[in-house]
Nucleic acid binder design. Structure first.
Length: 768
DNA sequence: CAGTGAGCGAGCTTCCGCTTGACTT
């Protein structure tokens, strides 16, 4: 018999707490929620006051059995789940599943894991707060109702297996609306005038002043004319202003800001960041990684100060406590910080080291002094034009926190680099080195990255630290959005330069719209979004979550009845569901593009059974309509008649290579050449299926053949030993088998291979 | 790996938020 059993949510937390509590306490973990609404059906008896049907999921059965046993063996049970809505619900489910006594079960909470905090918590147990539990039940049931009533409407009216939800549908909406802004955007070009000046015309020293003219020119000829004016002008310093300023460090990391910075500084995806952070947490190297709090414990503040004093000195230290700003924050944990602030580095994988260092720097910097800067602006006047050039420079007088860490921004602009300006006096004569007019296009609003989407969702108070990464996976898994790179389109930029009295013109190419790992909406995402906006505008409203959150708060405070709140929501919502099912037509995103120039048949595009498709002819007319799939990166919304007609040119016969026909087409994985019943992919960004030549196609086929030969290390007839991306492996009957560790691939015999394959098949069956 | 788009219909799909492994490649 144990004297005391403490139940927490996370096993790593259980381990650390056990160390502090001593022999009389056994600490175990519930691994999060132990019960949920029934998986099948709605799991809610709506007519019976929204009575929930809870069940223990299969994968939780073992944990629950162990918890039951532990509880039975203990005199006192202490429930120490997190101090928020979800944590309180976990506590209540534990009480009912473990058949504990609600009024006497000791509910305790703590925000930092120190001996002091734990002892204080143990001395102040309370009861499970049923108001807070009920606010969680309302949240859970509302989400289930929204998801499980709208999704089937989509299956009927749009396509099977789609989904909608309070969080995911807003995430998709953000991406779709941004894309439409980009589609509607018309870039405009203008010429900016940049001059490089120096004080002494003969000096070769690097004390240059880079200044921009206060006027831009939309017309190239006007820009050139201005440079002519410049060539005969005198330039003098018209004014100098020096202003002191300060810069302050960013708060310590929350889940959302960690995901953003790890993406910007380390190139991690949102889910990669969470996997690496989980490893660090389990190893006891950082505090909990799913948090919305920027709070640091007193201990962490003191330790940070100690580290800063010894590393950088007194004047670099400034203890700060940050207030959490984000909407709906529940602050059950600390900010994400190193568990031991005096460890600057750790052992572990490269990614673990990198992420840890980022967390260390951010935490330490947040406790350091402001940086002091001096911003200097020099204005330069001309004697034959009212245009003023101005140069901005920044000098860091005291680096403060910048010694350790600078926060990145999403869209870093090289143009805004700060220079140190040489010292000049008012009225001083300046000499230009070059003055250039650079053509520049305005850019559309940026597409979302995973990280910037998380940032936006957090600002709207939608989603929680534990769901940002899964939500991003969901909207990609459903096919609503796709994360991809785009090469962009080449665009010429003109540069007109005045140098030593003569004007010359040159040009530079840029890839307009080049994108890396951005979220692009897909047709099905746009169709579903529009359908939801038309029929369920309340649910996809950016304020919906904030509004229901207010009501959940009222429930938590005991000012609102949870069943009443749900009833009010449901009666209006359910009517919308039935009305939509009854009255609305299927939504296919159909667009009539026009008529075929030769046959006069109708040409249209729509979402077909297997994806977006262009169609010539109408099933109402005679003859079967013809179909062609749209290419990736074409949208139903923007495709034109000629582009649609062009799709019907494929597949086409290309010609003969060594006696057999080559056919070019475009399939699920992009453009290909088919030759002797085998597919050869055309090179992305290099080959175009409409214009690829016979010679080029033959070269692709030949090259692939040679590569395949290189791949084969040994050929045992039906079994092949192949060299793959991850090293050698076996292939038989189109199935691949991994080699056991430590085997020398080049010494394998056919018998060895058969043995490996049989062994692998056996273990596979066991796990089935 | 890639090509498809007649029509019918059984049975399936689906939410958010709290936690980790157990999987395969």
């Amino acid at each position: 018999m144990t004297e005391n059993l403490v139940i927490v949510e996370s096993p790593a937390k259980a381990k650390t707490i056990e160390k502090y509590l001593g022999k009389d306490f056994r600490v175990v973990s519930s691994f999060g929620h132990i019960r949920d609404l029934a998986k099948k059906n709605l799991g809610i008896d709506i007519k019976n006051n929204f009575s929930p049907e809870y069940e223990i999921p299969k994968e939780k059965a073992k944990v629950v059995a162990e918890l039951r046993k532990a509880a039975a063996e203990s005199k006192n049970v202490w429930i120490a789940s997190d101090e928020d809505r979800e944590g309180e619900a976990i506590a209540w489910h534990l009480v009912s599943v473990l058949k504990l006594n609600l009024p006497t079960t000791k509910r305790i909470v703590f925000h930092e894991i120190t001996k002091d905090a734990l002892e204080k918590a143990i001395l102040n147990p309370r009861q499970v707060d049923m108001n807070l539990v009920n606010s969680q039940q309302a949240r859970r049931i509302l989400d289930r109702i929204v998801g499980f009533e709208i999704s089937p409407v989509l299956w009927k009216k749009v396509q099977p297996a789609l989904s909608a939800g309070r969080v995911q549908s807003v995430a998709v909406r953000l991406i779709v609306e941004r894309e439409r802004e980009i589609i509607a955007f018309k870039p405009e070009s203008s010429f900016r005038i940049n001059g490089i000046f120096r004080t002494d015309p003969d000096s070769t020293e690097n004390n240059l002043i880079r200044a921009e003219a206060g006027k831009r020119f939309s017309d190239e000829n006007d820009a050139a004319r201005f440079l002519e004016v410049c060539s005969s002008s005198e330039f003098r310093v018209a004014g100098i202003s020096v202003k002191p300023g300060t810069r302050s460090p960013a708060p310590p990391f929350t889940t959302s800001t960690l995901q953003q910075e790890a993406y910007r500084k380390l190139g991690f995806s949102v889910s990669q960041t969470m996997t690496v952070a989980q490893k660090l947490y389990e190893a006891g190297k950082i505090t909990y990684m799913r948090t919305d709090s920027t709070n640091l414990s007193k201990l962490a503040l003191a330790k940070s100060r100690e580290v800063i004093l010894s590393e950088f000195g007194e004047k670099y230290s400034r203890t700060r406590q940050f207030k959490t700003k984000s909407k709906g924050a529940q602050e059950a944990h600390e900010a994400i910080r190193p568990a031991y602030l005096n460890s600057l580095t750790i052992t572990g994988s490269q990614n673990e080291k990198k992420l840890y260092e980022l967390i260390w720097k951010r935490t330490i910097a947040s406790q350091m002094a402001d940086a002091e800067v001096e911003r200097t602006t020099i204005s330069i006047a001309m004697n034959n034009s009212p245009v003023i050039f101005s140069a901005a420079g920044e000098v860091i007088k005291f680096d403060g926190f910048l010694k350790v860490y600078t926060e990145s921004t999403d869209y870093e602009n090289g143009d805004e680099e700060k220079y140190i300006l040489p010292s000049v006096k008012k009225g001083m004569l300046l000499h230009y080195v070059t003055i250039s007019a650079f053509q520049k296009y305005t850019t559309p609003p940026p597409r979302y990255t995973e990280a910037s989407l998380v940032k936006k969702l957090e600002e709207l108070g939608i989603g929680r630290p534990s769901t940002y990464a899964p939500t991003i996976s969901t909207i990609q898994n459903r096919g609503y959005v796709l994360k991809e790179d785009r090469p962009g389109e080449k665009r010429q930029l003109k540069i007109i330069t005045l140098s030593k009295g003569t004007i010359s013109t040159s040009s530079k190419t840029e890839a307009a719209g080049k994108e890396k790992a951005k979220l692009f909406p897909q047709d099905i995402g746009m169709i579903v979004n529009d359908f939801l906006l038309e029929n369920f505008s309340e649910i996809v409203d950016y304020n919906f979550t904030a509004e229901v959150e207010e009501q959940f708060d009222e429930i938590a405070e005991g000012r609102l009845k949870w069943t009443g709140m749900l009833d009010k929501f449901y009666s209006a919502f359910h009517k919308t569901v039935t009305d939509t099912l009854e009255k609305k037509n299927r939504k296919t995103g159909i667009r009539i593009l026009g008529v075929h120039p030769e046959t006069g048949e109708q040409v249209s595009v729509k979402m077909g059974r297997f994806g977006p498709v262009a169609q010539i002819g109408d099933s109402a007319q005679e003859g079967k309509p013809r179909f062609a799939s749209l290419n990736r990166n074409q949208l139903l919304e923007t495709i034109t008649l000629p582009e649609a007609l062009n799709l019907f040119r494929l597949p086409r016969s290309l010609g003969i290579y060594e006696g057999d026909e080559m056919v070019v087409g475009t399939g699920k994985f992009g453009p290909y050449v088919r030759y002797r019943n085998k597919f050869y992919s055309l090179k992305k960004g290099v080959d175009d299926p409409y214009s690829v030549t016979v010679e080029r196609a033959a070269a692709i086929i030949k090259e692939k053949g040679e590569n395949d030969k290189k791949k084969v290390m040994k050929d045992f007839g039906e079994i092949l030993l192949l060299n793959g991306r991850y090293g050698p492996y076996l292939s038989k009957d189109k199935k691949n088998y991994r080699l056991p560790k430590g085997i020398q691939a080049d010494k394998l015999t056919k018998e060895d291979c058969i043995g490996i394959i049989n062994e692998s098949e056996k273990t596979k069956k066991r796990t089935d």
